[in-house]
């Protein structure tokens, strides 16, 4: 009894993966929630993202994209993302061979313990006071260490600017009171973003009510992209 007490006295309280992030006391703290059960794989998010943010149209540069996972009856996994899903998906595997299939929209997780921010040698990528991970294109030296450090493949080298580029959660829209372009243009409202600091926000409620999951939790990146109904095969 005494021993238990002593241990519990020194033991700190551990944070759940979902709350791994240390929120600021004041001001908004942005997170993202994606409902896989609502995603129809139309690719509107990926398409509007490219246009809104002047991402080069070639199929090698994405701030946001959609993957189709197919788990076949024989146990094998097949994943596709033709042009990031921008042109939609055509089902290639016949229905009778499929055990399970679903779409997974991907984008920057805006981690609160970002591996990419950690490794930037000059402070050109950083977390804004609102918890948005940004790149300063006038300061980036283009060493691409951050691309290597991102476990989610969310960064790319901009082919003409020669600096690293990534999702800004449409910071320019957030600051004007708008939603990110990908969220606004989702036809089924499968993706939302919002203030995690506000307990009444749509996203806080989403996280509370649903059994949400983050990608690669074992890497402890403090990801703030929460998926509902994510399959464990997704990486």
């Amino acid at each position: 009894m005494a021993g238990t007490l002593a241990v519990s006295a020194v033991l700190p309280s551990f944070n759940a993966v979902l709350f791994a992030a240390t929120k600021p006391k004041k001001g908004p703290w942005y997170g993202i929630a994606i409902d896989i059960e609502k995603c129809i794989g139309c690719g509107s998010c990926a398409k509007t993202c490219k246009i809104e943010n002047d991402v080069p149209p070639e199929p090698f540069f994405f701030r946001s994209w959609v993957e189709q996972y197919t788990i076949k009856k024989d146990g094998s996994i097949n994943v596709v993302s033709p042009n990031g899903g921008i042109d939609g998906f055509t089902q290639k595997i016949p229905d009778n061979e499929i055990e399970k299939t679903f779409f997974v929209p991907k984008m920057c997780n805006h981690c609160s313990k970002s591996p990419c921010v950690q490794v930037c040698p000059v402070g050109a990528t950083f977390e804004s006071p609102e918890g948005v991970v940004l790149v300063d294109e006038k300061y980036c030296i283009g060493c691409r260490y951050c691309i290597q450090a991102c476990p989610y493949g969310c960064r790319y080298m901009h082919p003409t600017k020669k600096v690293v580029d990534k999702c800004t959660l449409c910071y320019h829209r957030l600051k004007k009171g708008l939603n990110p372009a990908c969220m606004d243009n989702c036809p089924t409202k499968a993706r939302i973003s919002g203030d995690l600091n506000d307990p009444d926000s749509e996203i806080s409620e989403f996280i509370r009510k649903k059994n949400v999951y983050v990608l690669k939790p074992h890497l402890n990146t403090g990801s703030k992209l929460y998926y509902n109904a994510l399959n464990q095969e997704v990486r």
Binding site: Q118, V119, C120, P121, V122, G123, A124, Y139, C140, I141, G142, C143, R144, Y145, M157, K161, K162, V163, V164
Partner: peptide
């Protein structure tokens, strides 16, 4: 580097958590 002429930044504002800095 994508921007070789900015290489000096690594000496001027080294980010101490970065192994490369």
């Amino acid at each position: 580097l994508g921007q070789p002429f900015r290489a000096w930044e690594i000496m001027i504002t080294p980010h101490l958590t970065s192994a490369m800095a």
